[in-house]
Design a protein around this nucleic acid. Structure first.
Lengths: 125, 125
DNA sequence: CATCGTGCTACAATAATTGTAGCAAGGACG
DNA sequence: CGTCCTTGCTACAATTATTGTAGCACGATG
């Protein structure tokens, strides 16, 4: 159920079915989404502090992600400025905490994984 | 594709510090990464079956993600064909299972969140 | 008023992704 | 052997997303 049906099917980013898990995976799979939630996990941050925490990512994307995250009700702009997690957002973040421990155990042995685009397919063009 | 590298600081995708959690968040934040892991959670799939499961995403990205995921030792190409999760990959996937329940409770009320590019600022060049 | 810090936007350059087509290698079958 | 499959994987132009830099309007503070 909950299909858009009218106004022409669109195809994009694997959320076509509208299953909540797909929508969520899609949303979290956008650039900086996970990072933003992660950086907000402890305390609210102003947009600029958040930007600083995210390696000075461009405000354009950050603002776009923030809008989406706010629309998803994971993040809110508190009174007096500063972005923070909502109760829902905090629950989501809790879900990710095990990821931290996992990452530590994982401990990336492959150096070419650290930065995008290095050590991938030998690109012959 | 000119890599900027070459001189001093490399900046890309928030993995600059090399902290495992950042590398992981970065890797998982790439398009289709989460989805691939998700689709592989039950059983191995051939590259084409996986593509079908991922709404016919283009083989270019899928192959790129698969390479990265293999390099991260989350996914492997089993003998006789077909991609499957490694033990490590299965552990990672376990970490995500709570996400499923979360997504169900969440149940996206905002229609503009379902597909990328809808409801955002229609900024076009 | 001048100066700061908010959240947020414009926009050209660049990088990533999509979509379509196709390759080489391997099995099965005749 | 030759054809027909299917596998993993690649080419490449077109399209989107992201980056980086600049700057806006608003409010608070001085």
């Amino acid at each position: 159920m909950a299909r858009r049906a009218a106004s022409g099917e669109r195809r994009a980013r694997g959320s076509r079915t509208g299953r909540p898990i797909m929508v969520l995976l899609d949303l979290l799979g956008r650039r900086w989404s996970l990072r933003i939630l992660w950086e907000l996990r402890d305390e609210p941050l102003t947009s600029r502090a958040l930007r600083a925490a995210c390696d000075e990512a461009s405000p354009t994307v950050l603002q776009a992600r923030l809008s989406e995250l706010r629309e998803a009700r994971f993040v809110e702009l508190g009174d007096g400025g500063g972005y923070g997690l909502t109760t829902l957002g905090r629950e989501l973040c809790e879900t990710f905490m095990p990821l931290h421990r996992f990452a530590e155990r994982w401990n990336v042995s492959s150096p070419s994984l650290r930065l995008r685009g290095e050590g991938e397919s030998p690109r012959r063009r």
